[in-house]
Nucleic acid binder design. Structure first.
Length: 154
DNA sequence: GCCAACGTTGGC
DNA sequence: GCCAACGTTGGC
């Protein structure tokens, strides 16, 4: 299958890029939205590339690139009562929530700001900038991927 | 199965 | 802090 591209959102309070820089590799836990879950469980494949986007912070921007190193498997934080993402409905026999593992490929020298993405006419269709979008895992087309990368290298 | 109420997300 | 958008819940 051809390589696919994704965008993962993170709030720096939850998981910052500084921490990712230290970890190098991490499990992407805490996704509690069914549409995003379906992507993680069914569509995100090993070798796919991922934009890491920081939300609810300043600046709002795509800040790093990552690569999927392990495909969807049950999110164990949903089964840990002490975890803030605990969901009693998810059990080892019947897990509801899924995660993938990613490794850091590159921290962008110049983050691509949300405000810049919105200004780019080529990215009019990009899901992230659509009004009301709340998905924390979303597909990115190859065209969008390349365009956004190019914006970072200026 | 409908839909109002409620909670959360996330930009501003 | 506000609020629009949208997902989820629960009464009927």
């Amino acid at each position: 299958m051809a390589k696919q591209y994704w965008l993962f959102k993170a709030e720096p309070e939850d998981y910052s890029i500084e921490l990712f820089r230290k970890d190098k590799k991490t499990y992407w836990d805490g996704v509690r939205n069914y549409q995003a879950r379906n992507f993680l469980r069914d569509s995100v494949k090993k070798g796919d590339e991922v934009f890491i986007y920081q939300s609810n912070t300043d600046p709002l921007a795509v800040v790093a690139l990552a690569e999927v190193v392990k495909e969807g498997y049950p999110d164990f934080t949903a089964m840990d009562p002490d975890n803030s993402h605990f969901d009693p409905k998810s059990t080892p026999e019947n897990p509801i929530w899924f995660m993938v593992d990613i490794k850091l490929t590159k921290v962008l020298k110049t983050p691509v700001l949300l405000s810049e993405l919105k200004k780019n006419p080529k990215l009019k269709e990009f899901k992230l900038i659509q009004r009301g979008n709340r998905l924390s895992v979303m597909p990115v087309t190859a065209t969008e991927w390349n365009e956004i990368l190019a914006m970072s290298e200026k």
